[in-house]
């Protein structure tokens, strides 16, 4: 594509299941991936709960969209960030989060886990560097 590539950030601040924000955000990310932009997905505040391992929604009768995060790599989302302070305030660490792999189909370059835990200052910088922030 010949247009200028823009940096899009999807900013997630809501826990899954209690409200529809988390699922809607994920759908928008997947749809937006068709536009070949430089996409990053950021999880801060209660948004970090979206990535917890072992989610099982059978008993509450809702769709479990946790497995869908693992397709983000297939949708060429290469950057997923989690705010460390938000994790710590919730008694969580990276070990509690799902792993999302990424692979370049052409070069077969592989990254085992693109989920990166970063400091709040870095979150702010990345927001500044983005051309557009989509907030959920």
């Amino acid at each position: 594509m010949s247009e200028v590539v823009k940096k899009f950030m999807y900013l997630n601040r809501k826990a899954p299941y209690g409200t529809i924000y988390a699922w809607e955000a994920l759908e928008v990310v997947l749809i937006g991936a068709a536009f070949d932009q430089d996409v990053s997905v950021m999880f801060i505040d209660d948004g970090v709960y979206q990535l917890t391992k072992g989610q099982d929604t059978k008993a509450i009768g809702m769709k479990n969209f946790s497995p869908t995060f693992r397709t983000l790599g297939d949708y060429e989302v290469k950057k997923i960030f989690v705010d460390r302070a938000s994790l710590e305030a919730r008694g969580l660490s990276q070990d509690d989060l799902v792993e999302i792999a990424w692979e370049d189909f052409e070069t077969e370059e592989e990254i085992e886990n693109i989920v990166e835990v970063i400091d709040s200052a870095r979150v702010g910088e990345l927001m500044n560097e983005s051309d557009a922030i989509f907030s959920f």
Partner: peptide, 25 residues
């Protein structure tokens, strides 16, 4: 079954290539 979504066409193409071979992807 695994990811709980139906993939978009370019993701399908990529994933088929990975699973069933590049001649089909």
């Amino acid at each position: 079954e695994e990811y709980q979504i139906a993939p978009a066409v370019r993701v399908l193409t990529k994933a088929v290539g990975k699973k069933l071979g590049k001649d089909k992807g």
